[in-house]
Design a protein around this nucleic acid. Structure first.
Lengths: 189, 189
DNA sequence: ATTTATATACCGACCAGACGGTTCAGTTGC
DNA sequence: GCAACTGAACCGTCTGGTCGGTATATAAAT
């Protein structure tokens, strides 16, 4: 239900987009309701009508981010060739697509806001990560390689998220290939 | 110079400790000068005498964190047996000691504050990471394994930092062993 | 058909508290 | 005498949240 009857984005979506953009531009700690309202093209009252508190807004940002990663992973399921450590490869590829592609901001910055404002907002993320571990544990032929591959992607994503990545595009591509090799071939005996 | 002439912690250290503790307890976005001063056992004036602004305090927190990791790595240099991918193993072990041991908070929370308040504060961290990459590139026989090992440690550290880790102590130990195997044996051909 | 009622979506002035930082006279210990 | 504070008042700004009001649409009543 992304659009209303007249084919325009709903206020909710406009607000979430605006909030994500702003966090990417001015930083997580500087996100204000006034700024979000202005960017979204409505008043502060209108914003607080849609999200009764800042916490509610942040929660929605996080949830949207979680849903996007899940959707990306399931979409990949039909595209990626099955085989060794499939679940880890799906998770890795989904995360890489989100965080090293263009949509990184929404994923990354939502997290940042959350930790700064209220660590409790990360509870849903905790659940998702626990589920991911479960899925990887169950759907991997080589658990060690699967875990390391997943963690490496997490590490890379985190560096990119905070703009701390020292990697060139070439480096990154190299790393992605190495992760895939690790996931399909495993650790040397 | 952690202690002054009478063998007590200097005010600077007390303040930095207090700030780290507070961030760990109440979250990065809620750190206030008043709270730090109270926790450190001096007045707000005294706090601002030592750190003329909140930014200066945050900078010092970050710097201390960087220095701790560096020191830990160099201390390990005399303890870890030399061999394959030494630099990556040193970096990995230093990070693991910091983030999965007790001192995690200082390392982790400094980062969190910084990103919330002012992304520029992370500039020194950027430099350190770039240097680390350089060191690993130069001091590794198997670059792919070295990079993946390092990234996996970064991923694990990040999860622990944000309290997002789904791993049991057993899991963690298993992972650390797997990382060491990856670093010493490499990826399967 | 016209009035009345109700719900939805939104506006924007205002408020209360928090927070970073200033000031400054006074104190303590080397 | 100087460095390292104390204590407390004060200021200006920012910001989340409140609240009474408004416009539009749809439904109900007359």
């Amino acid at each position: 239900m992304l659009e209303n009857a007249r084919g325009r984005k709903s206020s909710r979506e406009k607000i979430l987009d605006a909030a994500s953009e702003l966090v990417a531009e001015i930083g997580a700690g500087r996100l204000t309701l006034d700024a979000v309202a202005e960017r979204a093209g409505l008043s502060k009252g209108g914003l607080l009508y849609n999200f009764p508190s800042k916490d509610a807004l942040l929660q929605a940002m996080i949830q949207r981010m979680i849903d996007q990663v899940s959707a990306s992973r399931e979409a990949l399921r039909t595209q990626i060739e099955p085989g060794r450590n499939l679940e880890a490869r799906l998770t890795a590829t989904a995360l890489l697509n989100m965080c090293c592609g263009g949509r990184m901001q929404q994923v990354a910055t939502g997290l940042m806001v959350a930790t700064a404002e209220n660590p409790r907002l990360l509870d849903p993320v905790r659940s998702v990560i626990a589920e991911t571990l479960q899925r990887i544990k169950e759907g991997s032929e080589d658990l060690d390689a699967a875990l390391l591959g997943w963690l490496a992607v997490e590490g890379l994503s985190n560096l990119e998220m905070h703009n701390l990545s020292p990697f060139s595009d070439q480096d990154r591509e190299h790393i992605v290939q190495a992760i895939n090799r690790l996931l399909t071939k495993g650790i040397a005996p």
